[in-house]
Each structure stands twice: as C-alpha cells, then as structure tokens.
Design a protein around this nucleic acid. Structure first.
Length: 591
RNA sequence: GGGGCAGUAGCUCAGUUUGGUUAGAGUAUCGGCCUGUCACGCCGAGGGUCGCGGGUUCGAGUCCCGUCUGCCCCGCCA
C-alpha cells in the first residue's frame, strides 16, 4: 500500500495512529540532531520527524533527502506539544515519527521549486509547467476550475438542460474571428476549421428539438493574443428554445447566484440592473462598464463649445463631443504628470487632454483662457469637483471614440489611484446593442455580436432601409466588475429574416446559401424561436480564484505568441505528413 | 500590424543613468557546525556565452544598429 492517508488530512485526533504517507519532499530542515521533512501532495503538507537517538540509521538516511524527491513513509502520528503546534498548517497539530522510508524517485535538483515563496518568471513556469503545477496555488486554482465545472453541470442538468457535444473538426465560416484550420488527408485541398464557438451547432440542436442544451466546450480563435486571451479557451455554452431574453437572463443569473453565494460568499443582488449599450458608452465609455467606482464621463459640450476655443468649436461642429472625467485629489498634479496622462489618450487616438482646475483663484491652461468662468464652474459642478483638491481631465474628439478613450482613462486613473474597493462586486446587464456597425475597411456593415442575432423588431422596421446601424439587437452581455463574463442573444429563427440579415451584411443570396448552407437548410424545416448565451469559463475561474491572469487557471496555457513552451507547439511536421496531406512546404519552412 | 517594459549564476534580482581593476546579493547546489524547526540558523566553497549577431571605442553587462524570447497596451478578437 502506498498510503493510508493524504498529506493534508491528519489532525490531533489521529494521535498514535500508524500511517503510511506518500508525496514529494517540500523542504528538509536538518537541525544537526533532529531532522524535519515537509512532505507535500495536492491535499496539503505534513511534517515528518527523524530523531537520531531513536533511529540513527534512518536519521542519517533522512539527511540525504532533497527537494522534490518522491517518498513513501511509514510512521506514527504524534500530537505535537502545545508550544510546537504550527497554526499556519492544517496538519500543524501533529507530526509523523517515521519508522521507514522508501524512495520512489530521487530526481536531481529541479529547475524550479514549487513552493509559494519562489516566484519564477512566467516563461520559466510555463517551460517547466509540470513542476509549476505542483505549487499549492496552482493546485487550488485547478481544483476551483474543476469545482466550477461540476457546479455548472449540476446546475444546468437540474434545470433540464442536456450536455451535448459538438464537433471540433468543422467547416470554416466567414464573419468573426480568423479560423484555425486543419488540412484533410482524405480530401486534398480541403480544410477543416476548428470552431470559434459551437454557435451554429447549438442552433441546429434547437431545430432538432433539444430545447435546453449546454456544453462546457473548447473554442478556438486565431487572432492576436493579449492578457486573458488565449487561442483556445473554454466556454459554458447555453441555448434554449421558446424563450425570450428574460428567460435566458434568468437562467444565467441563477448560475451567477450560485457562484456568488457558494464560491465567493458574497450576497447576490435581488435584481441585476440593466443598462443600454448607448448609456454604457455615454456614461462609462465602455460596453462593459466597471460600476465599482464613480468618476462617470460628463458631457461638457454645451458649456465649452461656442466660446471661441478653436479646437473645441471645430471638432464639435464636425460632430465631436467634449468629455470630462474627474480625478479627485489630483489638483496638484505636476505639468509632467498631466503630460503623461495626455500621452495616454494621445496613444489611443485623441488629439490632446486639457486639465480643468482652479489654482490660486485662477483657471490655468487653455480652458481658462477661452471658456467663461461661470461655464467652468458649472462644468466643475457637473463633474462633482471639489475645487480645493480635485482635478478633471477634458478632451474633445469625435464620438464615440472620445467616450471610449476617456473611459480607458477613467479605468487607468482608478487603477493608479486605487479607487476600486477590493471587496466590492458589481454586476449588470448591458442590453440594446446595435445590430450592426459599419466597417470602414471592408466598406460594409458587420454584425456587432454575430450574424445570427435577432434584431429588435421595432427598430428593424424603422431603420432597415435607411440607417441600418440604428437597428438594435436582442443581445445581452453580463458584466461583472468591468469584465464581460457572459454574452448572448435571441437568434433569428426565420429563414427569410436570416437571409435579410446576410443581405444587410453585404452577402448575396447565393453566397449565404453556400457559406451557411447547413444552417439555412435547418431554418427551413421548423426552427423554434430560440436564444442563448455563453460564459467565459476561464475568466469566471480567474475571478473566483482572485487571480489576475487567465494563464494561472489554465493547466497548459500558451504565450501571447500562441506558443506552448512546455510541449513545444507549434512544431514542424515531416515530409511524409506533408505528402499525405497533399501539401508542399515552402523550402524555408521545411524541417 | 504599431508601441512600451524586461532578458546578468539553476532560480529571483542589483549593477546600465555617467563605458574602466577580478560582474555582486539572496536563494538553490556541495562541504562543515548545530537536538524542536516549520522560508530553521551559522561558517565556507563551487557556479557567469551579462538573450543572440554586428558596430563604435585603447576598453562594452553599460553606447549604437539589427534580431530572438517573455510580459503589458493600442489595433484586432461577431
């Protein structure tokens, strides 16, 4: 038998028991006589003791133990004297008086010590992932990940949802992110694509009558990566038939309530507030506003325009807006610091940033030069400024870019000056998204959500032929502390409507039929009204564990260059593989 | 695609501003001492392609150019 107990379970009440433990050597503390060894497994750590007076041979052997050796030990549980209890360890009341050791593996010095005090670079951690994953924090994170998957499956199953798998080898579809593609060996010149999400499959499952579907599923997108964006990531994918947005939102809130109450011990709001996309952009410059702090954007256009300030007047005439944001307590910011904030917005496409503040009874800077004092005072009032202590930043630029950038500034200021309370949780639904936006580069409309999102009927009728970007959609995003944790919509279930949507996206009937044949076909044969949502599973786990990087909740993540440092992917393939696939490598990429 | 930061001992970092003797510290490793530690402590030793390539210079970890890797931001990501 390798073990009778794990390294995390023995307590004072187990005193005198004969036990066998197995695990990794975390530390050896050789005091010259008595030797302590901390043994680790994923359940915890337990202290082993070797006393040379009781067993000199065994103690001599224990002296030679090294970090990360794998041991099986027999021994007796001994309750520690009161003054030697380690209150920081769950097993701190006891230790094991070892009677025999079996060394199951005696590795050389490892390149990384998986103890919390050592924090190697991320590159190193990813290169030696199997060692890094031994650390307690990573084991806790992956345990939380497992737990959330279990909660999810239980929750949806109890509500009558079925988990149904959908293919990973599917066909490439236009719209949306770039596909990862896989060459076909049996059909040279043909390619599979890995799904960006199971979107079309879950809609087809609705047509097939599986009226409540969910799946914890991997999705793949070949775009440029960032913090918290991986080429493959996991979604909790949900779809239901005969539902309106409230049904989907209700089901979504139910899972969030479980997460809040059972995982975070945070009360869940009776009613999750809703905010329109338009309002979110106007007030926070973002479609995922962080409501944990104020400093809302304030539109100062009416106060500042028309006073002979050229930049403002000209920009406003061309449709721009003047937007201000409060920076409390910052009235004394130096010219240099203000300049740094200006660089921040300039890097994001604004022309400049003007400080608004009163110093020694004057309003320094360009605003004070052109804008009447009463208007400046009204602006300060609207921004909620305390003129003794506060500063505000003002920018003028075309909307909505000015809102977006000032929203980024708001977040950056909040982070820098620590305005966000650590224990606060703010949830909201963002609704009434535009259905379409105009893509200047492609010279056509593109779907804001995806091309299967149902339009809001009223605005559709009103604007379909005149101003399609004013059509709203039946989409909804759940935002938690400024992070989008779930997003979904009611889908188009009518073939004609779907065809009109493709037309709005600049696709001909023929094109739509070819590219979305299977969906169009399904919509022809009795599609129920349906809708759904998808949660970003990795992000949820990150928020639950309190981690700040998605990579710390994914066992084998990729770098921002989409490289797997541990396995070494992507890698070359050999000439035979090329031949079988009917492909010929460019000379410089062949082995 | 654009920008920022970083790369020095197995690991984490200092040294780069202002070029100049033998590149340091902590930790890990090895040796010695130590009987109640829990990041044990003390003494000592070994350990370096200063990411890589080129350039400037009498002399480069330090300055210049290029390049690779990691992280972060903008764009992108329905």
């Amino acid at each position: 038998m390798y073990r009778t107990h794990t390294c995390g379970e023995l307590r004072g009440t187990d005193d005198q028991q004969t036990v066998t433990l197995a695990g990794w050597v975390a530390r050896v503390r050789d005091l010259g006589g008595v030797i302590f060894v901390t043994l680790r497994d994923r359940y915890g750590k337990t202290q082993l003791v070797f006393d040379p007076e009781e067993n000199p041979e065994l103690a001599a052997d224990a002296k030679r133990l090294r970090a990360e050796w794998v041991l099986r030990v027999d021994g007796n549980v001994r309750k520690r004297p009161d003054d030697m209890i380690n209150p920081k360890m769950p097993t701190g009341e006891i230790e094991i008086v070892v009677t025999s050791i079996e060394k199951l593996a005696t590795p050389d010095t490892p390149p990384l010590l998986p103890e919390d005090e050592f924090e190697p670079s991320e590159e190193h951690r990813l290169r030696w992932r199997f060692l890094d994953l031994r650390r307690a924090r990573m084991q806790r994170n992956l345990a939380k990940r497992h737990e959330l998957a279990q909660i999810t499956r239980r929750y949806f199953s109890d509500l009558g949802f079925m988990e149904i798998e959908t293919p990973f080898l599917t066909r490439s579809t236009p719209e949306g992110a770039r596909d990862f593609v896989v060459p076909s060996r049996l059909h040279h010149g043909q390619w599979y694509a890995l799904p960006q999400s199971p979107q079309t499959y879950k809609q087809i499952l609705m047509v097939a009558g599986y009226d409540r579907y969910f799946q914890v599923v991997r999705c793949f997108r070949d775009e440029d990566f960032r913090a918290n964006r991986q080429p493959e990531f996991t979604q909790i994918d949900v779809e239901m038939s005969f539902c309106d947005p409230d049904d989907v939102m209700g089901v979504t809130e139910g899972l969030m309530k479980k997460i809040f109450e059972d995982q975070l011990n945070v009360p869940f709001p009776d009613k999750v507030q809703q905010m329109s996309y338009d309002e979110a952009i106007r007030r926070f410059g973002s479609d995922k506003p962080d409501l944990r702090f104020g400093n809302e954007l304030v539109d100062l256009t009416d106060l500042f325009a028309g006073n002979g300030f050229g930049v403002i007047d000209n920009t406003v005439k061309a449709g721009g807006r003047v937007i201000g944001v409060l920076a409390q307590g910052q009235v004394k910011s130096s010219r240099k610091v203000v300049g740094e904030w200006e660089s921040f917005v300039k890097e994001r496409g604004l022309g400049g940033l003007m400080p608004l503040r009163k110093v020694d009874g004057n309003w320094p800077g360009p605003l004070g030069k052109f804008i009447p004092e009463s208007n400046l005072e009204q602006a300060a009032e609207l921004l909620g400024m305390n003129l003794e202590s506060d500063l505000a930043f003002v920018a003028v630029a075309p909307a909505p870019r000015v809102h977006e950038v000032m929203g980024m500034l708001r977040l950056e200021l909040a982070q820098k000056f620590e305005w966000i309370p650590a224990d606060k949780h703010e949830l909201l639904w963002v609704v009434d998204f535009p259905l379409l936006e105009y893509d200047e580069e492609a010279k056509r409309h593109v779907a804001l959500h995806h091309p299967f999102t149902a339009p809001d009927p009223a605005t559709y009728e009103q604007y379909k032929d005149s101003e399609p970007t004013k059509i709203l959609s039946q989409a909804y995003d759940l935002v938690w502390n400024g992070e989008e944790v779930a997003g979904g919509s009611i889908r188009i279930h009518d073939r004609e409507m779907q065809m009109k949507m493709f037309n709005l996206l600049g696709m001909s009937e023929e094109e739509a039929k070819t590219r979305f044949s299977f969906l169009m076909e399904a919509l022809e044969y009795g599609a129920p009204p349906h809708g759904g949502i998808a949660f970003g599973f990795d992000r949820l786990v990150m928020l639950i564990t309190g981690e700040s990087s998605i990579r710390d909740v994914i066992p084998f993540p990729k770098t921002t260059q989409a490289v797997a440092l541990f396995e070494g992917a992507p890698g070359k393939i050999d000439a035979t593989q090329f031949r079988e696939l009917g492909l010929s490598p460019k000379s410089d990429t062949q082995n």
